[in-house]
Amino acid sequence: MLLWLLPPVAWFSVFILVPYAMLFWYSLGHTEDMHFVPGFSLANFARVFTDEPYLGVILKSARIGLTTAILSAIVAWPLAFVIAFHTRSASVKFALYLLVIVPWWASYLVKAYAWKTILGTNGILNATLQGLGFTDEPVRLFLYNEFSVVLTLTYIFTPFAVLSIYAQLERIPTSLIEAAKNLGAGGWEIFWRIVLPISVPGIIAGGIITFSLAFGDFVAPVLVGGSDSVMISNIVINLLGVAFDWPMAAAIGLVIITLGLGLISLTGWLEEKTKVRL
């Protein structure tokens, strides 16, 4: 019995408890001339909430994460729906499923970089718009702003939303739809009253993943962000690498983890509440 517990307990201690304890220990100290000085001060936490730019950047990152999660869900839902219900042949289903996952084999950096060549002043999009005579001058609003950051993040993280929504839709038995039809429900009614409500936990689960990944992202703002697209992970990296302010970085990390825990508890509760027994 105890032997079975050993691996999870060891894993939990080594990778979760000890690192978080260390993070907490660091967050209570400060640095002097690049040396860590231990202490028991909450000053770093106070700085997160009172000093510019930390709280503002955390909120902005949360906004970008939320926008990404919503857009990913909107893009992912119809695709998941088609794979689940409108693909008869198993091999086509598998092929579509594979196509959703395949981009993950390519490097994140390459994919983010590709958006530069599409959205840039002399990029593919502008060349097309000019070629078709829609504009005379290149449109500069496509790249290097929050729009391009959200677009890139949505593109990159949408597969997660597709997979979790698909997993939920897969569970709907065709007999349920047929029963609804027999009872006289139309296409829209089936969608609104059966398919969509049942898919909600999948949307939420996908939303948590896409939100978390986008919230903590630091590559997109660097590659396609504009002059004010700095996100909280960029700040943390800066604090670690340039300023050598590990205590401050640890404090920000803990604040984010606490916010994340709160959010996950909330959505977990929502997921439970919206679950439909099938």
Binding site: P53, K60, S227, D228, V230, L239, V242, D245
Partner: peptide
């Protein structure tokens, strides 16, 4: 005061245009 410099630089980057 490198830490302070960096904080200022981060404030600049986070500032709205």
């Amino acid at each position: 005061r490198r830490t302070k410099y960096l904080e200022i630089w981060n404030q600049v980057k986070a500032a709205a245009q």
